[in-house]
Design a protein around this nucleic acid. Structure first.
Lengths: 162, 162
DNA sequence: CTAAGATAGTCGCATCTGCAACTATCTAAA
DNA sequence: TTTAGATAGTTGCAGATGCGACTATCTTAG
């Protein structure tokens, strides 16, 4: 019996579709944070993390929970400090690390940026009904969990412990 | 009335989740095509396109339908030709372009690789039930359509026309 | 206390990839 | 036919980013 020749339709192949979709969505959003505010993705991730946790945290923590390499975060923090959007203070309890927080200027930018990004996200997702959006988020969540991508609050506490 | 302070939870923000998930899934697959066969993503996309369309096609066509920059495809094709996995022939009707196709060696590699990649995809998606997998694909498709990411067969014909 | 190993952050290096300029070729319009 | 503009593909360049080495600091075991 001859071996059936395998074929793979790239357009039905989930890894390819995720890559392409992620790239396209990022491009759609970059107009907001990049063109308008001169931020790249790692810089935006730093601000987003600092803004959500209304609290100073370390570069390492941001790297962990955004799954971004620490050198990338390091460079993003440097750039943000140069622009005086973020500042850091020594941690007396562990002098290896710094506590990062947004400056007043950084917070102002953040407050301007967030509604724009949320609006863009809504636009992109508006092709799905409310129910479908919830479903999509739920399914994404299941895949994330199975790939161990989900940062539990417990892990966050551990990383944050000092 | 004071303006409500906006916050954005990165872990619920779909663009971030898509980026992270796509990166993780790519990393999971790279063991198959990269570590085992020394292919990078653009090279794999070229092979996938040539393999699915059992037919010679141009670099430009591959760039269009995989949404990859033509310079990236050009370099991938060069690398694949060096390894004798792909060959190209002049198109007499349009001497600007070349018709690309896999060599026997390229097809052999492709035939080995496909089942591995499909198995990996299945593994990753196995955290969803069959019904959920279909649902996920359907929702992805709706988003892709609304972002105009879907290559219709009509467009394919147009691009392919010569 | 000391030594070995872990961790935070920085930086040089190599790689990847998008942009834009360039050549060659084709198409269409005057 | 000539010329302007479009298209296929290549390549130099620059920016982004992952890796690994490095320093400084902390932790833990003996």
């Amino acid at each position: 019996m001859p071996k059936a020749s395998s074929r793979l339709d790239l357009f039905r192949f989930v890894p390819f579709r995720l890559n392409r979709l992620a790239a396209e969505v990022s491009a759609a959003l970059s107009g907001e944070y990049q063109a308008r505010y001169g931020l790249d993705i790692p810089e935006w991730r730093v601000l987003a993390t600092l803004g959500f946790r209304n609290d100073a945290c370390s570069a390492q923590y941001i790297a962990h929970c955004t799954r971004t390499h620490k050198s990338t975060i390091s460079r993003a923090v440097t750039a943000l400090m140069t622009r005086q959007l973020v500042e850091r203070v020594e941690n007396k309890d562990d002098r290896r690390e710094f506590r990062l927080r947004m400056t007043r200027k950084g917070k102002a930018l953040y407050e301007q940026l967030i509604p724009r990004l949320l609006r863009k996200e809504s636009e992109i997702m508006s092709c799905l009904s409310t129910h479908e959006q919830k479903d999509f988020a739920r399914l994404l969540g299941k895949i994330e969990t199975s790939l161990d991508l989900v940062q539990t609050s417990h892990e966050a506490d551990e990383t944050e412990a000092y």
